[in-house]
Simulated scan of single mutants.
Amino acid sequence: MDSSRYAHRGHALRQGRFSEPGRAYLLTAVTHGREPIFHDWHLARLLIAEMRAAHDSNAVESLAWVLMPDHLHWLVVIGDMPLQTLAQRIKSRSAIAINKARLRHDKLWQKGFHDRALRREDDLQSVARYIVANPLRAGLVKHLGDYPLWDAIWL
Rank of each mutant, 00 (worst) to 15 (best):
H55F: 04
I98Y: 07
Q84E: 08
P148D: 03
V60Y: 00
K142V: 11
L67A: 01
R120H: 12
D122I: 03
M51S: 10
K100W: 15
R104I: 06
A128W: 03
R102A: 07
R129T: 11
N99L: 13
V76K: 02
D115F: 04
L63N: 03
D146N: 15
K111P: 02
N58H: 15
G145L: 09
F113I: 00
S62P: 05
P148I: 00
I90S: 04
A59H: 09
V132S: 11
A133W: 09
G145A: 14
A87L: 07
Y130Q: 13
H105I: 01
W109C: 01
A44Y: 06
A101H: 03
H143P: 06
K111F: 01
V76Q: 06
Y130N: 12
R89F: 04
G112H: 02
W65H: 11
P69K: 06
W41M: 02
N58S: 14
W109R: 06
N99H: 08
Y130T: 14
G139V: 13
D40E: 12
S94N: 04
D80V: 07
D40I: 03
H143C: 15
K91E: 01
S62F: 00
G139C: 13
H143V: 15
G112M: 06
V77E: 07
A128Y: 08
M68K: 02
A138V: 05
L136P: 10
V77I: 13
A133T: 07
L140V: 10
L124S: 12
I48N: 02
D122P: 00
E50C: 14
L46Q: 11
A59C: 04
M81T: 09
D122R: 02
L136N: 07
V132P: 14
L144K: 05
H114E: 01
R45L: 11
H143W: 07
W65M: 10
H42D: 11
N58L: 14
L108S: 04
D40S: 13
V66N: 05
H42M: 10
A53D: 15
D106V: 09
D146M: 10
I131A: 00
E121N: 12
L140I: 11
K91H: 05
P148T: 01
N58K: 15
R89S: 10
R52W: 04
K100T: 14
Y130M: 09
G139Q: 14
D146S: 15
L72E: 04
E121V: 12
A97V: 02
L43I: 03
L103D: 10
L46C: 04
A138S: 13
R120S: 09
L43C: 13
R89P: 00
V60E: 01
D70H: 10
H71W: 09
P135L: 10
V127F: 08
